[in-house]
Amino acid sequence: MSVTSSTAVVDQLGELPPGHMQAPPRSWWDRSFRPLLLAGLSVGIVVLAILLIFIFVSGWSRLTPTLWQNMPSIQFPELAGAQSAIMGSIWVIATTACISLPVGIMAAIYLEEYGNPNGRFFRLVEINIQNLAAVPSIVYGILGLGVIARALALGQTVITAAITLSLLVLPVVIISTREALRAVPQSIRFGSLALGATKWQTIWKQVLPAALPGTATGSILALSRAMGEAAPLLLLGAVTYITFNPSGVMSAYTVMPIQIYNWTSQSRDEFHTLAAALCVLLLVILLIMNGVAIFLRNRYQRRW
């Protein structure tokens, strides 16, 4: 087939008049398309650069160890730090990971390996997950406040925040894990099953390890989104002025985006500098997380 069609192309080329290889005069649209695309691309980069330079310059003077060594203070901005917010973020994100990763990965395994894709239940779940991924985060905040903080009486604690953020990132974890599982070739499953492994052994020892890099990439990106999230936590009452580190999941807490929000709403300029410095720190952490995700993706991409 392909041989005949390619000879046909060659024949056609042979009949073309000499000189047909010269580029035809290009239209205005043709010539301007590429610069236009470049311009579109540079808007993003320029905005990001301006943003980074701006907050870097404004926060530079407070990018000192006191930022993570000291607690927030209302009276003494020159002594104030963000340790409670940094530790709060770590607690909340770690707890979120502990909840959302096992649940999300199990859900994805069910959908990819066990579920019947033509079943009604399966399609209902699938559509719901896609819709949930598009729900604004503030809505999750309302849910968390009404159901987790009040109805379940978990209050304004790390665990409430973690459960709420877990719900927020769960669709992303499930979708990216499913993609990673789907990328594992069937021949690996068949090879394992043909050796007398059970379905569960095949999933646990072959499919999941092979899907791990993809899962990790998606999960890290999802968690880094949760880390920068302020809206749902504002509703959950993380606004309170906290000068201690969380001591457990039932502890009160604040997180970095909320601390930034607090400081920017203060009237004194010193606090704005602090907010900018904390922004830089948050961005650095997020960039590192995304960097790890990209590294994992490139390092372990398609080994078969």
Binding site: I188, F190, S192, A194
Partner: peptide, 25 residues
């Protein structure tokens, strides 16, 4: 047992490839 048309080693070490069957048993 079965050997497939297209070689399908697991993305694991040579040792683990061979040890896999005995291990799961």
């Amino acid at each position: 047992g079965m050997v497939f048309q297209k070689p399908n080693p697991f993305p694991k070490s040579i040792f683990d490839n061979v040890a896999y069957g005995p291990r799961v048993q």
